[in-house]
Amino acid sequence: MNFDWDVVWTSLPRLLQGAEMTLWLAVVTMALAIPGGLVLAFMRLSGIRAFAFAATCFVEFFRATPLILQIYWVYYVLPAYFDIQFSQLSTAILGLTCNVSAFNSETFRSGIVSIRAGQWNAGRAIGMADGQIMWYIVLPQAVMRVLPALASTWVSLFKDTSLVSIISVADLSYVSLKIRSETYRILEVLSALAAIYWLMGYPQAKFVDWLHRRYKVAE
C-alpha cells in the first residue's frame, strides 16, 4: 500500500476553511442556544401552565430525537409542507440551536432549582422582586454551578456540527469528504480529518476537565 500524504498538505487551506466553518457553527449555535436555553428554562419554571407545557414539549422532542433527523426535517419537511425555505447554513444553525437549547434548558433548570430557598428568602427580605432575585442572585450562582455541564455540551456540539455536512454546509467534515471523493485518498484524508478534530477538541475536553475540578465544590 502506498500513501500520498501530499494530498493532505495541498488540501490544507480548504481543510482549514472547513475547520473555520465548524468553529463558527459551534460558536454561533452556542451563542443562540444559551439565551434559548434560558428562555425555555424560565418558561418551565414560570408556573404559567401554558408556557411550561410548550417548553416541556419542545425540550422533550429535541432531546429525544436524533439531531440528524432534526436537520433533515428542517431542511426537507418545512419547505415541502409549510412553504418555509431556509438556506443550508440557516437550516444548520436552526437545527443545532433547537437541539442545544433543549439540552441547555435542562442544564439551566437543574442549576436554578439547586439554589436553596433561603437565597430567595434573603432576596425577598430586602424587598427585591422575584425577577431581580433570579437575575442578580440565583442565576449567577446557578450558572457557576452548571458551567462544567455547559462545557460538556459545548464539546458535544463541536463534534455534532459534523452532521450538517449532510445538507452540504461546507464544514470540516463536508470539505474532507469532498476532497476524499475528488482524490480517492480515503485513509489520508480521513486521518487528517481526525487529526484536525482532535487537535481542536482535545484542549476543549481538557478545559472541561479543569472546569469540573475547579467548580466541583459547591460553595
Binding site: Q119, A122, A125, I137
Partner: peptide, 10 residues
C-alpha cells in the same frame, strides 16, 4: 430587615 439563622449571604 430580616436576619436569618444561616446568614443567607449571597
Amino acid at each position: 430587615g430580616m436576619v436569618f439563622q444561616n446568614f443567607e449571604l449571597f
